[in-house]
Design a binder for these strands. Sequence first.
DNA 1: AGGTGCACTGCAACGAGTTGCATAGGTACG
DNA 2: CGTACCTATGCAACTCGTTGCAGTGCACCT
Lengths: 180, 180
Amino acid sequence: MALEHAILVSLTERAGSGYELARRFDRSIGYFWPATHQQIYRVLRRMDEAGWVKHTEIAQDGRPDKKVYRVAAAGRAELSRWLAEPEDPAILRDGLGVKLRGASLGSVDLVLREIERHRAEHATRREVYRGIQKRDFPKPATLHGRDLHQYLVLRGGIRAEESFVAWCDEVIDALRKDSR
Amino acid sequence: MALEHAILVSLTERAGSGYELARRFDRSIGYFWPATHQQIYRVLRRMDEAGWVKHTEIAQDGRPDKKVYRVAAAGRAELSRWLAEPEDPAILRDGLGVKLRGASLGSVDLVLREIERHRAEHATRREVYRGIQKRDFPKPATLHGRDLHQYLVLRGGIRAEESFVAWCDEVIDALRKDSR
DNA sequence: AGGTGCACTGCAACGAGTTGCATAGGTACG
DNA sequence: CGTACCTATGCAACTCGTTGCAGTGCACCT
C-alpha cells in the first residue's frame, strides 16, 4: 500500500533509476521502509503505466542503459491525496519476543545468547544513525521544513534502537539473575 | 517463517482450537505477532499434515464442533530446533515515518494531526500493557522461568509504546515550533 | 418477528514480499 | 587468466498476509 508512496517521496527529493532507488532504500529511507530492488522495479513499472511517474532512457557507455524516473503531475496528486489520508499505526512483529516467550521449551541459555546478538546488532544501527545525525544535522535547533522532517524521522530510528537495546539489557540482566 | 512457531509456543502453554488461538492472538501473543483467524487455520492445517500437531474433534451442543489442537512430538522437536536457530532482527516499517518525511509535499498541518492521532493510539496500548503488568505481574522481582519470560516480553511491548509516544511528543513539539 | 453478535470453520482471490535466476559488460584482485 | 563484485534491469515461482464471503445455530435485544 505504501511502497508506492515511499518511492514517490524519494523521487520527489530527486529523480533516479530503479537501481539508484534501491541503493537509497538500503540507506536512509529503507531504515524505515525496507524494500528490495525487485519490489522497486515492479512498483516503478506499475506507477509508470498508471502515469504517476515518467521515465527517460539514458544510454551509458561501459554500463547498462538506465531508466531515470521522475514524478509526474498525477504522482504528485496521488502523493498529496495519500498524505491527507489516515495511516494505520505501525505494527510490531518481533520473532525474538516469540523466542523469549518460548525459551523454557528449549535452551534458555541459547536464547540468552541470541538476545545478546540482537543487542549488538541494534546497538550498531543506533551508532550508524547517531553518526548520520552528527554529520547531517549538527544543529537541530536551526532546522526548518523538509530538513526538520528528515531529522525527526531519523530521531525516530534512533529512539527505536535505543529502546530496543535498553530492553535487551533488561532481559539479559533478568535472565542471568534467574539462572543463578 | 515464524507464525508456525508462535502457534506452537501458544499451543504448548495450553491446547486449543483455531478460534481460541485467534482470540489469544488478539490479546497477549498477538501484540507481538499479529495474525488473523485465516492465517491461523491455514497454518494449523499445514502443521497437522506435517504431524507437528494433532487434533481431536469435539462436538459441542448449541455451538459448532471444534477441533482442539495439541502439540505432537514432531512439533516439540521443531520448536526446539527453531529456538536454537538464529533469528533475523526485527525490521521497523512505519508509514508514519514516510508521511513525516514527505510532509512538506502536502499539508504539514494534516500530518501533524495524524501524528497526534497515532500518539493517542499508542498511549492507549501502553496503558493496556501497563494494566496487564499490574494485574498479572505485580511483583516482578519474584518471577522465574516461564512467568519471567512472559513478563519480559510484555516489558518489550511497554518500552516500544513508551518510546513511540515520546517520539511523537518530540515531533509534535518541533512541528508546532516550526510553524510559528 | 427480525436484526445483531458470537462461536466455529473454511474457501477463493488478491496483493505484498522473498528468493533464485538470467543477462551483460566493466573493473579490481590475486 | 579466472573469479568475483558492481551497475543495471527483469522474469518466474513462491510464501505470507489481507479481505470478502459463506454457512450454522444459539442468545440477546427491540
